[in-house]
Every structure is written in structure tokens, then in C-alpha cells.
Computed example of a mutant assay.
Amino acid sequence: MLSQIRFSTLRLALGLMLGALVLSGCVTGDGDTRHLQPLPARLVSDMSAKGMSQSDPILVRIFKKESELEVWKRDRSGQYALLKTYPMCRWSGQLGPKKREGDRQAPEGFYSVTADLMNPRSQFYLSFNLGYPNPLEKSQGATGSALMVHGACTSAGCFAMTDEGVTEIYGLAREAFAGGQRSFQVQALPFRMTPENMARHRNSPHIAFWRNLKEGADHFEATKQPPKLAACGRRYVFNAREGSGPFAPAEACPPYEIDPDVQPLVSQRQARDEARFAELIGSGTPAMSYAHLDGGMHQSFRTMLKSLGPERMQPMVAGKVEISRPDAALADPFGGDDAPGRTDTTGSLAPR
């Protein structure tokens, strides 16, 4: 993965991360024409090979635990296909939703990014605002602002990429808007919503919320189309049939049906996942336990950072981290796959 990132850019990003962890937000500053950089020729070639054009609509998926950001793009079939996966350089907080200003939590949920949320003059190179809190989060009293995807590899509630990575992502959004897309959906998820991950995290206080997020992920996986969003009864509703509602996030759900073209596809996927989930529980798959560490980053960046020495790793070792057994705590503070006990630095399920 690091072969795709210029070494000088990476060193600069890591330096900014280590020197700027005390920053408390993702605010904007002066910039230049960096937001107008054309998409790399190789990326354009990849689009063409996958039946996509620069102007086709996009969708973004973010996975905290894996520290990855995916850009999906509509292809000539009319469905969305994965264009590229970007390693995330830094996210802060724990697994679980953001609740209040200053809690350092990177948010989880479904967001709609419009052109006015794009920030070409970001203090963190380039950025776009997720639009947190969304209507459901507002109805629950959530507070916070300027929750971004940006560059500079430092985070206090945002999702930080490298400058090179965010330049590509920003450019893909720019071209989609120019092609007529009015907004693109961002699915910010705690982890890949597999039966295996759901089984491991089944004792979390957030499990009901995550099951609701999984519904939306299932709708997308089953149809390869962004699910239509609504909210009621303090939860998301996906692909409600036309004419259903009205929906109000803080009110009880009215009678509604899922789009009949979508429901069989989603039900089939959910039944398969539930069967696998039951199999995992029946075979004794252990639930997670937790030690202390804050946030996470992609394994490629962890490897680079570890090479800089323990004194530079230390600023990152604060907060909570999931572990597979108690004696593995902090065996490897950056949670590499080769770590004793498979320590994982991607966050806790406990609220801060």
C-alpha cells in the first residue's frame, strides 16, 4: 500500500500528525488552486476499464476498524462498483457514534454531502464536511461541527487521509458534482458489517445501533445502489416505499413497506448473515474485551510510525483499544497483524 504513496508526502503527513494532535477541530484556512488538480491518469484509466467516467456519481464508505475509505462509482450498468480503497492515516476516538462537541469521536452513520460542504481552502489541505449532525443525530441531541474527511494525517473527530489521498477523493467528488450529482452518500461504519464482526462485538452497548447501520449496509450490498434514507423511532429507515411516511426521527415510525424491488434482495442477504452469525455464536466465537488506546490508523501507516521509535509512538497510546485476550494488552501498541495476541488499535466500544 505504501508503494502508492510518495515517501516525502508520507513523512510530511506523519510529522503533521505528531506535531498537531492537540488541535481540537477540523477548521478551515486559506488555500490555493490545489482543489483543481486533475485526476491522475492511472485513476482515469482504471475508471475506463471499469466502465466508469469521471462525471459518474460516487458514494463513499468509511470503515473505522479497518481504517479504510472506499470510493464507489456508478458504472455503465447503472450499479455502483468499487473504484478504489484508500488507507486512512488517522481517526480519533472509539468505535461508536459521536454524541457531543469535544468528545473526539469520529462519527458513525449515513450522511449526504452536497457541493456547499466541499472545502477547497482547508487548513488540512483539502476537505469535505460530512454534515454531522444529520437529522437523526440532531433529534437525539447530538452536538458537534466541522466533522471532515481531510488531509494532513491528524484527527480530533475527523477522518484524516494523506494529502495525496484526499486530493484524489476531492477530485472525484468535484467531477461527480460537475457531472450533475447533487449530493453523494457517505456511509461511516464502525467496521465492515460482516457476521464475524457482528459476533465479535455482540456485547457492545452500541450493538442495537450497529444492527441498524448494518441494515443500510445490507441494502447497499444487495442492490449496489445508495439506499434512500429516512428516520423514525430514533433509527434509520432504508428504501421505504414511495408514499410511506411521513417520517420524523424523534417520532414513532408510521406503517411503511420497503421497496418491493429491494426487499427480497435484502432479506436474502440478511437471512444468510443471520445464519452465519448463529453459527459463529454456537461455535463459541468470543466477544471482545478492551484495554486502553485511542483511535487508529491503517496498518501501513502504523508500520511506518513504529519505525520512528517508541518516543514518537507514545502520543498515540491514550484511550481504548480492543484486544483478543487480557494479557495481550499493549503487546503491540499499533496492533499489527504480527502482534502477540493480535492487539488491534482501532478503538473501544465504551462511550467516552
Rank of each mutant, 00 (worst) to 15 (best):
286 P>H: 12
200 R>H: 15
150 H>A: 10
333 P>Q: 12
186 V>E: 09
250 A>T: 03
101 E>K: 08
341 G>I: 04
210 W>R: 07
299 Q>D: 11
88 M>L: 15
69 L>R: 05
97 P>K: 09
31 G>K: 12
101 E>T: 03
207 I>Q: 11
350 A>R: 13
91 W>K: 09
324 S>Y: 15
17 M>H: 10
324 S>C: 01
177 F>P: 04
289 S>M: 11
12 L>P: 00
208 A>N: 08
83 L>V: 02
212 N>K: 06
273 D>A: 08
214 K>M: 08
127 S>M: 14
99 K>T: 13
136 L>M: 10
245 G>Y: 09
226 P>Q: 11
87 P>W: 10
120 P>W: 11
90 R>S: 07
162 T>W: 13
124 F>H: 13
78 G>A: 11
55 S>Y: 10
228 K>T: 14
207 I>N: 01
231 A>C: 11
113 V>S: 04
193 M>D: 07
108 E>W: 06
79 Q>H: 08
270 Q>Y: 00
253 C>I: 01
315 P>D: 11
111 Y>W: 07
341 G>T: 04
26 C>N: 14
49 A>I: 01
102 G>L: 06
269 R>M: 06
21 L>C: 01
83 L>S: 10
213 L>H: 12
327 D>E: 15
51 G>D: 02
9 T>P: 00
144 G>E: 05
289 S>W: 03
127 S>G: 12
196 E>Y: 08
74 R>Q: 15
181 Q>L: 03
162 T>C: 02
284 G>T: 08
159 F>L: 12
302 R>W: 05
178 A>N: 05
164 E>I: 07
311 E>P: 00
25 G>C: 12
